[in-house]
């Protein structure tokens, strides 16, 4: 496993963990105001950043110990940029669909907060698709 693959795996893990946390909160207290939901999602974004940084540090240390040498990132080359672009393209499709889904939810007359959750969930899914696509493209070309 390369550093970039590990980074993608951590991003994927982070998206799953944070999404699960937000979903649990949404189900546990569905009567929150828009302001409260927005605040919760801001905390979720902050938690996502902290989780990713901490997980990368921890996994880098663990893999370095397991391999017996420093596990570090390499300078990106043309293949890395191509993999990143293709993964981003997939994520863009999912993010666009998330935007559309949120609009449909509001158009159908659901609560504003429901649409916000749909939008946030869709964007987290887009992040997961980006990371998952990178893993697939690095493995199968």
């Amino acid at each position: 496993m390369t550093f970039k693959e590990m980074n993608a795996a951590v991003m994927l893990l982070g998206a799953v963990v944070i999404s699960a946390w937000v979903l649990t909160g949404a189900i546990g207290d569905p009567t929150l105001t828009l302001s409260a939901v927005a605040t919760r999602l801001c905390w979720a974004i902050l938690a996502s950043i902290v989780f990713n940084i901490a997980a990368i540090i921890v996994f880098t240390i663990l893999i370095s110990i397991a391999q017996g040498r420093e596990f570090r990132d390499e300078v990106a080359d043309e293949r890395d940029r191509l993999v990143g672009a293709k993964a981003m393209r997939n994520a863009y499709v999912v993010a666009s669909l998330a935007g559309l889904a949120a609009l449909i939810v509001w158009a159908l007359g659901y609560e504003v907060t429901t649409g916000v959750y749909v939008l946030f969930g869709g964007l987290m899914l887009a992040g997961a698709v980006d990371a998952g696509s990178q893993l697939v493209y690095y493995r199968i070309g």
Binding site: T2, V75, D77, E78, R79
Partner: peptide, 8 residues
Amino acid sequence: VTRQTIVA
């Protein structure tokens, strides 16, 4: 390039 690119 990276070694992974040569492998691929």
